[in-house]
């Protein structure tokens, strides 16, 4: 028991952990596990595509224009998210609310555009069972969409706290929400060329 307490004290005092909020380390561990999830899917997609070939025909049916639009939307939402984080640091109350609201709006825009894409693809008869390409496509974009939805819910809770004025006691949460949001953006940066441009 005493030995465990000693090890814990050493870990906390260790220089490597100095100046890092415990929440941030936890969040990065979470993001690391997410890298494994998406990295695993992306690796399998690349290997299967290389092994089987002939996916170009299926890939030609995805709408690269809407994919490009969504890329712009998501990158812009990363800008508004970092500006919300920056507004917290500069104690700009109006900025926090405005930029969080814009981030949420852009997140919903992404999902609506994705919804139109799915609708068009289903109308053409493409479903997750239409072949390996479509299985990967719906799996990866669907999982990414769910992550984005989780990010929107987090941002709505942050916006609610900002409206009530309680966010100032929990400023770190905007940074953590932002880290998660940017990670979802980074995942899309790789999914877009993989699924739309190749």
């Amino acid at each position: 028991m005493e030995a465990t307490a000693h090890i814990a004290t050493r870990a906390v005092n260790d220089d490597a952990f100095k100046d890092i909020a415990p929440g941030r380390i936890a969040l990065w561990w979470f993001l690391a596990s997410e890298i494994m999830v998406f990295g695993g899917f992306i690796t399998c997609y690349v290997l299967f595509r290389y092994a089987h070939g002939g996916w170009e025909e299926a890939a030609a049916h995805v709408n690269w224009r809407l994919g490009s639009l969504n890329t712009v939307v998501l990158l812009t939402s990363s800008l508004t998210m970092i500006l919300a984080h920056y507004s917290i640091k500069t104690e700009d109350q109006r900025g926090v609310k405005t930029f969080l609201a814009l981030t949420i709006l852009l997140g919903f825009t992404f999902l609506v555009v994705k919804g139109f894409e799915y609708h068009a693809e289903f109308a053409e008869g493409f479903t997750p069972l239409s072949g390996l390409f479509w299985s990967f496509y719906f799996l990866m974009t669907g999982l990414h969409g769910l992550h984005l939805l989780a990010g929107i819910i987090i941002n709505i809770s942050l916006l609610t706290m900002a409206m009530r004025g309680t966010i100032w006691a929990h400023r770190d949460r905007v940074e953590f929400g932002g880290l998660y949001w940017h990670f979802v953006d980074v995942v899309w940066i790789f999914l877009f060329p993989l699924l739309y441009l190749m």
């Binding site: 890092i20 380390i25 990065w28 993001l31 990363s78 970092i82 880290l179 940017h182």
Partner: peptide, 23 residues
Amino acid sequence: VMRNYMHLKAENLIIHAIAIIPI
């Protein structure tokens, strides 16, 4: 995005290690 918006360029070594291991 990672260096500027996620502030990885100013992060502690331990955070870099956590991010690189799964890659």
